[in-house]
């Protein structure tokens, strides 16, 4: 999946010479947590996060007259200038890694000189939900497999033989030599395919074996 597929094209902007008060208002009215600060040539000059605002904005417990000066501070004084950006054709896992390692909430998406969007933690989270197949129809089958060539094809073969559509597949690491495969398969009755996967020597973790709890 590419950043282009999950990014938001409707990002909120602010000018570096605008005030703290204006930045805060834009954030509240647009209901976003990140503003792109752009210069007169529409180029990215910085980024303002809700964390930046909270750091400089006066406490709501103080009286308003003390605020007058602070809220007129220009954006360029407190915006982040060392902004980490990403390209729309980068993979989303790269975006996820950047957000995670740098402890940040969003990445402006830049193509050449042009700002084309923003990708936030929330977009990544949604992509993760999609990847797990939680939004797709079907029965879940989980298989524990050794990490060696041909395993996935071997199991996919079983679904193919039964004409069953795999709506989603996800792998996770379950040990140094093992992988856990999560399939979402379009059937109400996975019993036969489960038997056949087991006959091939793989351990099916879900659904549990019939008689798992020794049904009488």
């Amino acid at each position: 999946m590419k950043v282009r597929q999950i990014m938001s094209q409707r990002y909120a902007v602010i000018h570096p010479d605008d005030t703290l008060q204006q930045a805060r208002t834009v954030m509240l009215t647009r209901n976003v947590r990140h503003l792109l600060a752009i210069d007169r040539e529409d180029r990215l000059a910085g980024l303002v996060s809700d964390r930046d605002i909270r750091e400089v904005y006066p406490s709501s417990l103080e009286s308003p007259d003390q605020h007058q000066e602070i809220i007129r501070v220009p954006v360029h004084q407190f915006m982040s200038k060392m902004v980490i950006t990403i390209h729309p054709d980068d993979d989303i896992e790269e975006a996820a890694l950047l957000l995670y390692e740098n402890n940040i909430g969003s990445l402006p998406v830049i193509e050449g000189e042009e700002i084309v969007g923003i990708v936030t933690m929330k977009d990544i989270l949604y992509a993760l939900i999609e990847l797990t197949g939680l939004h797709t129809h079907g029965s879940t089958i989980k298989v524990e497999v050794p990490n060696r060539p041909g395993v996935l094809a071997d199991i996919a073969e079983v679904f193919k033989k039964h004409g069953m559509c795999i709506n989603s597949v996800m792998t996770s690491i379950s040990g140094p030599l093992n992988r856990r495969l999560n399939f979402r398969v379009d059937t109400i009755n996975p019993r036969q395919v489960v038997r056949e996967i087991e006959e091939k020597g793989y351990q099916v973790v879900w659904p549990p074996k019939e008689g798992f709890y020794e049904k009488e």
């Binding site: 939680l134 797709t136 129809h137 079907g138 029965s139 879940t140 979402r184 059937t187 109400i188 879900w206 659904p207």
Partner: peptide
Amino acid sequence: GRYLFPGT
């Protein structure tokens, strides 16, 4: 529906 058909 996390695991069982129809998954909704």
